[in-house]
Simulated assay, not measured.
Amino acid sequence: MTDAPAFDAPFEDVLAAIAFNGDGLVPAIAQAEGSGEILMMAWMNRDSVLETLRTGRVCYWSRSRGALWRKGESSGQVQTLKDFRIDCDGDTLLLIVDQQGVACHTGRRSCFYRAVRNGALETIQEVETDPSILYGKHAH
């Protein structure tokens, strides 16, 4: 088990507080511990929430694969959970994480590497790690 934070409330209470959508999913925003940088957004289902809380290693639900997605499983870019927060409506999660390496499959620190500047789309973060190194030939 990783260095998981302690959660006092029973997990059933946690699950009851989450407003999963019609597909059984809830958006989860990953934010870097310390800097507050928003790293990514992904989906979680009941099983990925439970695995994340039980292990302290962030697990999402991959809609494209139809399976649990343990962040860093193939890339080594693991997210360790530091805090698990639920918004006021229960329909969005905020995961405070310790991010090892980059969070984005493009090899950038954050998935939010593009911004609108003066009416045009601009890349504001450069690639830190070649995706082919992270994922082999099959980068998604």
Rank of each mutant, 00 (worst) to 15 (best):
Q77C: 15
M41Y: 12
T2P: 09
R117Q: 00
D98C: 13
G101R: 02
R46S: 08
E122Y: 02
R117A: 02
D23V: 03
A28W: 07
Y60C: 15
I133W: 05
G136C: 01
A67C: 08
I38D: 11
W69G: 04
T55N: 08
I86P: 05
Y60N: 15
S110A: 04
R54I: 09
E128G: 01
A4K: 11
S62T: 09
S132Y: 06
R63S: 14
A9S: 10
P131K: 11
V78E: 10
R108N: 14
C88V: 11
R46D: 15
A16E: 13
F7H: 08
C111Q: 00
W43G: 15
T92R: 00
H138A: 12
G107I: 00
T55S: 14
F11Y: 10
D47H: 01
E33P: 02
E12T: 13
T129V: 15
I38P: 12
Q125W: 10
A67E: 14
S48H: 00
A32N: 14
K71G: 15
F112T: 04
G72T: 01
N21P: 06
I86T: 13
G119V: 13
A17C: 01
H138D: 08
A28Y: 12
P5M: 11
D91S: 00
H138Q: 09
A4Q: 09
A42L: 11
R70K: 15
V127A: 07
W61G: 12
E37I: 09
N118P: 02
E51V: 03
R57C: 00
R57L: 07
